[in-house]
Design a protein around this nucleic acid. Structure first.
Length: 193
DNA sequence: GCGCCGATTGGCT
DNA sequence: GCCAATCGGCGCC
């Protein structure tokens, strides 16, 4: 059974929501198959005021319409023309803030994930934003839907107050040094970068 | 209209 | 460690 986040959970700014998502479980029904992953690494993007955010250049950048949807909306975009990346829109509404999912620990539907990530070691299934979307079957079809009414839901009952760490974001050129990347301390499942 | 670059990944030097 | 793959937005001609 999936435990809903409190109604206003995503109304807070992305840098406040991001650490609270650590440990929560994603339950995906994409492609008609159930897969699960526990969130171990995320990054906050602050919206219009953040030079690295897709909201920084305004509303029509990179097909980012859903970034301006209500908090709790999925924003899924195509990176480098081949990999999907999944974000959850945060508050305040209309700010363009969001949390990027960077790595999850595979916890369910392992046979399906193994198929989708054929030939790769289990540690490589979900340890990157594009990789976890591939393993969970996430594509643009999810973009714009509300998280708790969508094919990929969130179970906060596994979130914990365990040791968390925080550091610079990766893979970007602007505002790279802002300490908006969060992960579960000691997890072997986080991304390489 | 054209060329460049990105919140990435995987294969090869 | 380096680099190609691949595509849409943006800047500039």
């Amino acid at each position: 059974m999936t435990q809903r986040p409190p109604d206003r959970f995503f109304d807070a700014p992305a840098d406040d929501v991001a650490p609270r998502l650590l440990g929560a479980t994603l339950v995906s029904r994409m492609g008609g198959r159930v897969t699960r992953g526990r969130i171990v690494e995320v990054e906050a993007y602050l919206g219009q005021s953040d030079p690295a955010s897709h909201a920084y250049r305004g509303r029509r950048h990179r097909g980012n319409e859903s970034l301006y949807g209500p908090p709790g909306t999925w924003y899924v975009y195509l990176s480098y023309g081949m990999h999907w990346c999944a974000n959850l829109v945060c508050g305040p509404a209309g700010s363009g803030g969001a949390v990027l999912l960077r790595a999850v620990e595979p916890t369910g539907g392992l046979a399906t994930m193994a198929e989708r990530r054929a030939g790769r070691a289990r540690e490589e299934w979900c340890n990157g934003p594009g990789k976890l979307c591939a393993a969970l079957g996430i594509t643009r079809e999810l973009d714009g839907s509300r998280v708790m009414a969508s094919a990929v839901r969130l179970d906060l009952s596994t979130a914990r107050d365990g040791p968390r760490a925080q550091g610079p974001r990766v893979g970007i050129t602007k505002a790279r040094e802002w300490p908006l990347r969060f992960w579960l301390e000691g997890t072997p499942w986080r991304s390489r970068a």
